[in-house]
Design a protein around this nucleic acid. Structure first.
Lengths: 249, 249
DNA sequence: CGCCTCTTTGAGAAGCTTCAATGTGAGTGG
DNA sequence: CCACTCACATTGAAGCTTCTCAAAGAGGCG
């Protein structure tokens, strides 16, 4: 287990920077602890301090904020390999809450230890910076999605994004994915109500673009759905950007 | 001018990390160039590479993305002291466009030189990380604003945020601010139409919460507007967070 | 089997957009 | 110095998207 977790961390960091032997050793020496939590558990609460840096090993999580009306806005969805929150690493408290969407396994690293590793090892700095900038790029796309696209397109876009990210993380098994979101949670991520999400999914189903059964999403023709979703994968920075920035150093 | 720009950079970095003498010297040695641009000029185009890191010295800018419908979504507004884009520092190309809102003055640093400074000097790393995480925190609040708050609240919230940021940057002169946004641009930032923004501003005016004349915003009672806006300043991380993270190192 | 969560569907209402036209102020050229 | 233009703001009326409220169906787990 702990070896698998380390493996996953290495791969994740390696996606965004070319670590050398010493970097790998530094990561290996990190005092990792294993953590688990049930679906729905709060991994982080807005306003509270975090003493550890948590990285998802298996399962999904969501980051959210609440409006005074009680409305919930999911601002990000985390898949295995991603951090529960980077902001707590550098700020004293969490500016959002994070909750498990499924039962989750995580590795935990004491905050100060991990921050030191990030600050002292340029390639790890680079990996974390790029991870954070990727999250920002996704946020920007979500803003565009919520602000300027109609509901059906929005739903389709979220499904495309999750498909692409799950693919890139190597958790996929073809054209179908398990995305552990209820219709209400999809709505909370898109600024819609559960009822309307239901109707949009029904239309996407009638157009044979998306089939949803329980938590399983089937996308028969990715190309077609991506067109309907106005989805272009580039904002996910999945390509070999890492290479080029390293070389030019 | 160049001294004023350096001064501004120092202050900005200093807000998020306690630079030592050597850090300051490293920043001072940076090969800065002065740049200007007219209102409306593109400072960065989505998909294109950036060879320099640009920091706003005076004037305002906006980052945006376009939908297929032609709709524009402003994803961030930059005020003096802020970077035009951090993502280009680490990725090879821009994942959004940036356009000047007013005539702007900027300092320009060759991308690779600045990246090296960021990667090699831990306190500069920390400053850039926190700057980036602050931008992420603002994005999250914008997502909440667009997804879960009605139009009038949204408009009020944007005005509160700009007031608070302009205050924190020390560009304010009391309870009135120049915010160089047309009603159309406010709409583009909030996912609304210019017409509806107009009506919401009218209502805020009738309630004596906001007076707008040209580009000048007057807020007679900040407390009252912040309540109407559901605005809480904490997400802007304006406080002395920097201190605590440094101390605990 | 029964409960609980999630989904589905309908009907009416609200909020926001669209279209269209008029108003207003600043800058420009005759 | 005035008319002209252009960008921005303002207002009304109608329509559409999305929400709210309400109730019924479906599936999994103890």
């Amino acid at each position: 287990m702990s070896e698998a977790a380390l493996e996953m961390m290495m791969r994740q960091f390696g996606r965004h920077a070319e670590l050398d032997e010493e970097d790998r050793r530094a990561l290996t020496r990190l005092p990792l602890t294993r953590r688990t939590a049930n679906a729905g558990a709060f991994l982080l609460r807005e306003g509270e301090p975090a003493h550890d840096h948590l990285i998802l090993v298996s399962g999904f999580a969501q980051r959210h904020k609440l409006a005074r009306s009680g409305g919930r806005q999911i601002v990000a969805i985390q898949i295995p390999g991603e951090a529960i929150s980077c902001s707590t690493l550098f700020f004293g408290w969490a500016d959002h809450s994070t909750q498990a969407l499924t039962p989750v396994e995580m590795v935990s690293i004491p905050r100060d230890v991990f921050r030191r590793a990030v600050l002292e090892r340029p390639r790890i700095t680079e990996a974390i910076m790029k991870t954070t900038l990727l999250e920002a790029s996704i946020s920007n796309e979500w803003l565009l999605n919520m602000g300027r696209r109609p509901a059906k397109t929005r739903v389709a876009h979220l499904l495309c994004e999750m498909a692409a990210r799950i693919d890139a993380a190597g958790i996929s098994n073809g054209t179908q994915y398990d995305i552990p979101l209820t219709q209400e949670q999809i709505g909370d991520a898109l600024g819609l109500t559960a009822v309307h999400v239901n109707r949009m999914l029904k239309e996407l189903n009638e157009e044979a673009l998306v089939f949803r059964d329980g938590r399983r999403i089937k996308i028969p023709d990715r190309r077609k759905l991506e067109y309907a979703a106005e989805f272009t994968v580039s904002y996910l920075h999945i390509d070999r950007d890492a290479r080029s920035t390293i070389r030019s150093r």
